[in-house]
């Protein structure tokens, strides 16, 4: 790891001014992605700004019909939160399936969302639940936020402070984990609210998380696993690697969607 200056601000405003003072500063949340990247010397920030002591980033609250989760809330705390388990059990289950227990004790929702790894779990939940990402500057709809592999709408120096999730009527997430890394080979999050159905897919595409329009249309017509049968998934821009070809992943998207719908219906 290359040397860096370490800063430990206690307010979002101080974070902002610390970011302004360094050319190439990085925010440190749980460090479960940033530190491995720095150890491999794939990142070499001049300064690391630790969000661990910043006030106001660690609450889980119910606000009206939304569950609002602070950026620094750890995966383990989402997984075990009574509020989340009651309102959006699919989201609690998703958080409980990220990596392993030690990773879940450190990793945060803000870090995962800001990173937008093409195989990460949270981005699928945010897209399929129509979540809103709140930053120190503005609110961004999930549909506008995720802009391709490791790319988001965040500007330089923009800090995620929380994520707000509307409570769905039904939802479920099913992932086919890579047997070694446990990252999603394909993960599908399905949600239903009134007549609206959203299907978000992670792990499959070279462009990162996306909404599957064809599957959504089929499920809007009829919300059951059978409706998805035979609906083609365009895998032309899917990931092909030693773990599976693009065609294999395209088929997995369909299979995972069926399982997610069945799970959402409580069957």
């Amino acid at each position: 790891m290359y040397a860096f200056a370490y800063q430990r601000p206690t307010t979002v405003r101080q974070v902002q001014s610390a970011l302004g003072k360094h050319d190439d500063a990085k925010l440190l949340a749980g460090g479960q992605t940033l530190l491995p990247t720095m150890k491999q010397r794939l990142a070499s920030p001049s300064a690391v700004i630790d969000l661990g002591h910043v006030a106001g980033l660690s609450a889980i609250e119910k606000k009206g019909r939304n569950i609002v989760i602070g950026a620094m809330v750890r995966h383990a705390d989402v997984a075990t939160s009574d509020l989340v388990r009651e309102a959006i059990p699919a989201l609690a289950a998703l958080a409980g399936g990220i990596g392993d227990p030690a990773v879940r004790n450190r990793g945060t929702i803000g870090g995962s969302v800001a990173n937008n790894d093409p195989s990460a779990d949270y981005p699928a939940a945010l897209l399929a639940l129509g979540a809103t990402i709140v930053t120190n500057k503005r609110k961004i709809a999930a549909d506008d936020f995720f802009q391709g592999m490791f790319t988001t709408a965040l500007d330089d120096g923009e800090i995620i402070t929380k994520v707000s999730f509307p409570v769905p009527a039904k939802a479920a997430y099913v992932k086919f984990p890579n047997p070694a890394s446990r990252y999603a080979m394909v993960g599908v999050f399905v949600s239903k609210k009134g007549s609206d159905v959203k299907v978000a897919v992670t792990g499959a595409s070279n462009e990162g998380v996306f909404r599957a329009a064809g599957l959504e249309a089929a499920l809007k017509a009829k919300f059951n696993a059978k409706a998805v049968e035979g609906v083609a998934v365009d895998g032309s821009n899917f990931i092909s690697d030693i773990h599976g070809t693009a065609d294999y992943r395209a088929n997995l998207v369909n299979v995972m969607t069926k399982r997610a719908v069945t799970k959402a219906l409580g069957k």
Binding site: Y6, R8, L28, G31, Q32, L35, P36, K39, Q40, V48, D50, G52, A76, D100, P101, A102, V103, N105, R106
Partner: peptide, 29 residues
Amino acid sequence: CDTSQCGACVVHVDGKAIKSCTTLAATCD
């Protein structure tokens, strides 16, 4: 492993298991 996978480095910080190879000492102040 030093790459966050193996868990040989697990210790408890404030009562929770974490990987000490993927945590800065500074954040444990």
